[in-house]
Design a protein around this nucleic acid. Structure first.
Lengths: 273, 273
DNA sequence: TCCGTAAGTTAGGCAATCCTAACTTTTGCG
DNA sequence: CGCAAAAGTTAGGATTGCCTAACTTACGGA
């Protein structure tokens, strides 16, 4: 009935979740903190400390006590594998089985730990090797490479800008439904008509209609940064990460952008994809 | 990342595996024994005793010490739910994703614990609500009803009999591949041309060719019993089950049949579907 | 520079599963 | 009927993962 039916190198679902979360929290060069990780995974920080020890022992992460963790190459490979499975599954559910985009995430969250790479490859082939999931998040290639361009959020754009929606963060099904109703989906062209000051509402022109959205919501809608736009989004813009020795790229990373960054509410049970 | 993303009443994968195994071992009215169950699940008998206590506490099975277990209604419902998920997934993998029939089982074995009923329903709808999986095993309906007709095996048929292959047990991928090469698949018509005595080889006429198969292999190939044929197969013909007070149906259950039944080698890591 | 707070760790527990070893019940054979 | 083998159970451990409580470290501001 059950017995040994491993999939790959057989990481537990928990381990895969940790690696995925660390990957996302590392973002563009930081280390992931224990508390952050705990919040992302919806568990207690003390539990993270324990797992971190085990992951480090397995060579999947490197850990500097009190300073956060980073993925090793092996860890990053595993994380990207899980992310690929997740996003291909999301795309497949939406494309081949008619799932609405606000419900693919939770289903994929479970299947990603059970699906074999063969299954995922067959799914990808069946829907024409998509490059992004239904929320616009890039799908890592089989070889573990992924488009990691940083994106700007609608909240970063000055009035008058035109852009094409690239990606929407999929934290919250209700938010996705709402965005869908507004016509805000990957691929849709938008234009920033106006921005009220002090984080006030933003007026958009989308699908020939004008829409008002709050700055908070706008921050979850991402576009390819038009020339000259500095941006704040960083695939999960971390707040106070104990900046333990960043590595590559150091450009406009902490540049201007919306108002208060920091404070990422991170629902504890959800996340992006 | 992970956190609470339950599926249903949230039984663990382990519990689902136990219930499924018990369902299959109960067969047509027996109780499932600890050792059998252990063999089916590929774990030690002592481990089964422990789980049995917990399942009984949860009201999923009833247990008579030293006498085996039976599913309660709740347990049977859960088991049929898992079996439905398993078989629909198998059918979907074969039908929609081009999986060869010898590889659907293992993939389904993992996915059945992660797929939601909604996903399974969508899969079933996408391939036209199949009634059986690729090996011919009946798929329980959403309401938990299932065709439980007993089948005869090729080994039960006298020479001259004609029949249509109904189902093939999917224990072993290699065996499935071999049967596939012989043209032995659900739906195919066969005719027993000859049977050598003492469990010797059986000559079949299938797809206009004559084939020889051993009695052991023939026992894994099931057909609807032609009138007058007594049969031995019982969806996994149990051997020495401590027959603790059978309940309903008592017909030809222990009737004639091939030679030595008993001795079910049950691979410990595989099983039927 | 000093300290309080926030972040991170350790200690001690618990639940689910599985294991081996040793003990108990059943059951079938002579 | 009696006993030994087979089946089933209990005892005692290990692992994975998570929790709470209590302790330690790091860091920013006065």
């Amino acid at each position: 009935m059950s017995a040994a039916v491993p999939r790959r190198a057989a990481l537990t679902a928990s381990v895969e979740d940790y690696l995925k979360a660390i990957y996302e929290l590392e973002g563009y060069g930081g280390a992931a903190g224990t508390k952050e990780l705990a919040a992302a995974l919806g568990i207690a920080p003390a539990s993270v400390s324990g797992m971190v020890r085990r992951l480090a022992e397995q060579g999947l992460i490197s850990h500097q006590r009190y300073r956060g963790v980073r993925l090793t190459d092996a860890g990053r490979r595993a994380a990207l594998g899980t992310i690929r499975r997740h996003r291909v599954i999301e795309a497949y559910l939406a494309e081949a089985l008619g799932y609405p985009w606000d419900r693919v995430h939770d289903e994929a969250e479970r299947l990603e730990h059970a699906a074999s790479d063969e299954l995922v490859d067959r799914m990808a082939a069946a829907i024409g090797e998509p490059e992004t999931d239904p929320h616009g998040a890039p799908i890592p290639a089989r070889d573990g490479t992924m488009d990691e361009r940083r994106l700007a959020s609608l909240d970063d754009l000055p009035p008058g800008t035109q852009a094409r929606i690239q990606r929407v963060e999929d934290d919250d099904p209700a938010r996705l439904r709402y965005l869908g109703e507004l016509g805000i989906k990957p691929g849709a062209p938008v234009r920033i008509v106006d921005r009220a000051p002090y984080g006030g509402p933003i007026t958009l022109r989308i699908a020939r209609a004008e829409r008002l959205i709050g700055s908070e919501l706008a921050r979850h809608v991402l576009v390819i940064p038009p020339p000259g736009v500095t941006f704040s989004h960083a695939a999960g813009a971390r707040s106070a990460v104990p900046a333990a020795g960043r590595d590559a790229a150091g450009s406009a990373r902490h540049a201007a952008g919306g108002g208060k960054r920091g404070r990422r509410r991170r629902g504890s049970a959800h996340d992006r994809d």
